[in-house]
Design a protein around this nucleic acid. Structure first.
Length: 370
DNA sequence: TATTCGTGGTT
DNA sequence: TAACCAAGAAT
């Protein structure tokens, strides 16, 4: 195999067609670190504004290490996979206090840090330090599967894919090479419509030569995604504040804030569910009022329907059972807390609500719960 | 090794 | 439009 041909073709193409991305001109390894975390499973165009805001607010690794958790999550709010924010925070702290503030330049050390696997480590080391480490993200897996006509599903063929990524890598300019390889995947060798006519590797692509470019890589059948109905309460007190709680530190949407609620049990009405969940999680008695909004939301492996009702505090002192913390907050102060996207739809509904949705008559018991 | 982690874009 | 995919990692 003439690896040098592939390198020359790719790097020449990259010089003309490579994307101009904010983190590419930087020589700051911390900026590269931030970009690599944000880019895990997240498209470039989604990341760009988050990346720029992050570096503006936390311009150095020391700033990130010293930041408050809440500020870290606020900066990540809306980007998804929120564990990444915590891992990035922890990694910066470990680099600061265990490695003198310098990012370790050894693969074996780097991958021991939270949130850094082999691809992220390879991206950091090749980009920030021009070290010859390969990467294997979704783009690269697709490009290599087609280039070498690999008919084994990528998730069962990681070893061979890593081998090809390493063999192809240009040892003289690994940083540029890896960036170029991802640009081919993101702009030319697309999942459903490969544009072979403008691919720098067209003349060497075994996939196209055997007319398999549309059927590679081989995907395993997707599994069915379960659905859950969740009852959610926007609980008001007599001061016109609403009740929010912080989710547990593990599991879905860990550490984010939310309006309290939980899964509707079989045969249970939504108002009954909301009453029960808030009793179970916070030990509060509430009255359930009018329906506010129903939110359908899709996660990677779960679909939920949030049926949201207004509610009014009746009695009880909050106890922390199924959550880390709680707070009574003014509507205008909700923006201080990091919320998942589905809850932002609820906040939006509250903001556009035509009249104050916390009728005092509920406190006086004139409104029947549904 | 198979699941569990969000959200937005694309087809 | 429902399904697929995105600069993956941890458990």
């Amino acid at each position: 195999m003439d690896w040098q041909w592939f390198r020359t073709q790719l790097l020449t193409w990259y010089g003309e067609y490579g994307r101009d991305l904010p983190w590419r001109p930087t020589a700051d390894p911390y900026a590269v670190l931030v970009s690599e975390f944000m880019l895990q499973q997240t498209q470039v165009m989604t990341v760009i504004p988050y990346y720029q805001r992050w570096l503006k607010q936390l311009p150095t690794l020391a700033d990130c290490a010293q930041a408050q958790r809440q500020d870290i999550f606020k900066l990540w709010e809306g980007l998804g996979y929120y564990r990444r924010a915590e891992y990035l925070h922890q990694t910066c702290q470990m680099i600061m206090y265990n490695y003198g503030g310098n990012i370790p330049q050894e693969l074996a050390i780097l991958i021991t840090l939270p949130g850094i696997g082999r691809t992220t480590a390879g991206g950091i080391l090749s980009h920030a330090f021009n070290l010859p480490l390969p990467i294997l993200d979704g783009n690269v897996q697709r490009v290599l599967s087609r280039l070498f006509a690999l008919t084994t599903p990528p998730n069962r063929n990681q070893k061979q894919l890593w081998h090809y990524s390493q063999a192809l890598l240009d040892p003289d300019q690994p940083g540029r090479f890896n960036q170029a390889l991802m640009d081919v995947g993101a702009g030319v060798c697309l999942p459903k419509v490969p544009h072979c006519g403008r691919c720098p590797w067209q003349n060497g692509c075994m996939g196209e030569q055997t007319q398999q470019q549309h059927t590679l890589p081989v995907r395993e059948p997707a599994k069915e995604i379960p659905h859950r109905t969740i009852g959610v309460g926007v609980i008001w007190n007599a001061q016109g504040q609403v009740l929010i709680d912080q989710r547990p530190s593990t599991g879905l949407l860990a550490n984010l804030w939310e309006f309290p609620g939980g899964k509707v049990e079989p045969g249970e009405s939504v108002p009954d569910c909301i009453r029960r969940e808030i009793q179970e999680e916070l030990a509060l008695d509430i009255r359930v009022g009018a329906h506010l909004i129903t939110v359908n939301h899709r996660y990677t492996h779960l679909r939920v329907t949030l049926v949201v009702h207004h509610g009014f505090y009746q009695s009880g002192i909050p106890e922390l059972r199924g959550c880390q913390a709680y707070a009574w907050v003014e509507l205008r102060d909700l923006s201080e807390y990091p919320f998942p996207q589905a809850n932002h739809k609820i906040i939006q509904a509250l903001a556009t609500s035509p009249s104050p949705p916390w009728p005092l008559e509920m406190a006086e018991g004139r409104v029947q719960s549904e």
